[in-house]
């Protein structure tokens, strides 16, 4: 009896292992061979805005107070179905304001220019050239798009381990600590809502770029936010960078942020 039960369990175990291993091996083989999903392929639309390296320049001289930033933050959160959660712990934000000393820690001086001292700074995902969040993600749910350098999230692949949030040195990522849908005042159908348990962040309006629109924040900024191709010497952003002294957040970490600030 002992012997036969034992061999039965062994065979059953091996069979189960084989059944499980097959689909995994298939997926690995498929990803090695084609690198693309077997269901179809992506085509860039006719109207899509394209660039080799999307970057943003924020001209903080054009802002005076928090009121100037409000419409920018509002439009972003509206078009991306960012919920308005009242418990601070559960807060979700893609773009928000910080004081200079918090936006640029280690750059603050005790005696700061008065304008800068009181000025709220817009902060968002920096779409780093060398993103630590992408390095940390165990499922490639967050990735840097090879075509234009935008750091994106696949909300359906994210397992919610929050490693990316620990890795991000800019606090740019938010986690859905609960179902966000009841807290969206008015759902925008052009962009998906999220479910509980996944991470999200600014996506440089990839969904708008795909249909030929500039990022929502840039559109409502009255020219204070410039967006363009960093690799194109003739682009707006390159012109601004040429003519103005700019700083980036935590440059010493080697992440190479794509968001520049004119102070």
């Amino acid at each position: 009896m002992e012997r036969s039960r034992r061999s039965f369990l062994k065979i059953a175990g091996l069979t189960a292992l084989g059944v499980c291993a097959k689909p995994v091996a298939d997926v690995w083989a498929a990803s090695a061979e084609h690198g693309a999903s077997p269901q179809g392929r992506f085509v860039v639309g006719d109207k899509a805005l394209t660039a080799k390296h999307w970057a943003m320049v924020i001209d903080t001289r054009q802002f005076e107070s928090a009121e100037d930033l409000e419409p920018i933050i509002e439009v972003c959160h509206k078009v991306h179905n960012v919920p308005n959660l009242t418990v601070e712990r559960h807060e979700i934000k893609w773009i928000w304001e910080e004081e200079f000393e918090h936006a640029f820690p280690m750059k603050e001086n005790r005696y700061l220019n008065e304008r800068v001292k009181d000025l709220p700074f817009l902060v968002l995902c920096n779409h780093c050239e060398n993103p630590p969040c992408v390095r940390a993600c165990p499922t490639k749910a967050t990735f840097k798009r090879a075509s234009d350098g935008v750091v994106l999230m696949d909300f359906h692949r994210c397992i919610g381990c929050r490693f990316c949030m620990a890795a991000c040195p800019y606090g740019a990522r938010s986690f859905n600590f609960r179902d966000p849908r009841p807290f969206i005042a008015e759902v925008t159908t052009e962009f998906p809502t999220r479910m509980k348990g996944v991470v999200e962040k600014c996506n440089f309006c990839a969904e708008r770029l795909a249909v030929g629109k500039m990022p929502a924040c840039v559109e409502v900024s009255n020219g204070a936010l410039a967006f363009g191709d960093l690799d194109d010497p003739a682009s707006d952003v390159r012109q601004l960078l040429k003519e103005n002294f700019t700083i980036r957040r935590k440059q010493s970490l080697g992440t190479e942020p794509s968001v520049y600030y004119i102070v």
Binding site: R89, H90, G160, R162, A166, F175, F177, K196
Partner: peptide
């Protein structure tokens, strides 16, 4: 409910 029943937050994610 989601991980919101814990004390974790946007800043202390683990």
């Amino acid at each position: 409910f989601g991980l919101g029943i814990t004390g974790m937050s946007r800043d202390v994610t683990w």
